[in-house]
Nucleic acid binder design. Sequence first.
DNA 1: AGGCGATTTCCTGGTT
DNA 2: AAACCAGGAAATCGCC
Length: 198
Amino acid sequence: MSLYIQQRKQSNMDQWSSPICTYQQIAHDWQGFENLSSHQEDQSMNDIEDILDYISASPEMETSSDSDSDPAIPTTVHDIYDIKTQEPDNHRNSSNSRNISRHCRQNGSIRLWQFLRGLLLNPAFNPSHIMWINRSRGEFKIVKNKEIAQMWGDEKNNSGMTYEKMSRAMRYYYKHDILEPVLNRRLVYKFGPMSHGW
DNA sequence: AGGCGATTTCCTGGTT
DNA sequence: AAACCAGGAAATCGCC
């Protein structure tokens, strides 16, 4: 991972000015990375890249060098979807958050499973809103389904989103192996072989 | 403009 | 009875 970061640094395609240790922390924090099989590595690299892009664009990280927050918990990887919980005052206005989000998207808009993955990786929502049932198996439970659906709606600019509709989209994932069905477990889903980065 | 992927919306029916 | 779960069918929406 640090190798990857160094490569990225040397390729000076980015404006990374923060100390490398920050990224090593991030890498260390990226727990899933170590458990990935080799054929998944490329995909996880993309995930990490997304996250690092996000971090480099984050106003919080720009000032991270003087940050005095607990270094044990980088405010980084987990911040992907904290935008909606931020209330008025803060420095991250909506246009900024939109730009940041764009860094996490391959195409135009983020996919539902990626949105959920981001929530699972964010302690601001895990385990309060969504939590792992079995991290290694990719099983998770949506705790506050109404809220999550609402947030998904916000993400897509759709105020009419409901859990019913969101869950229909999730069931379509069964067909594509992005999610696998978990029988007889209400609100429990499982990432499938076509998902990654969790 | 048309096609396509990824949902979104609506709905009927079954289960917990 | 309220909440979920399963999927089919059709409509949308953004993107190429």
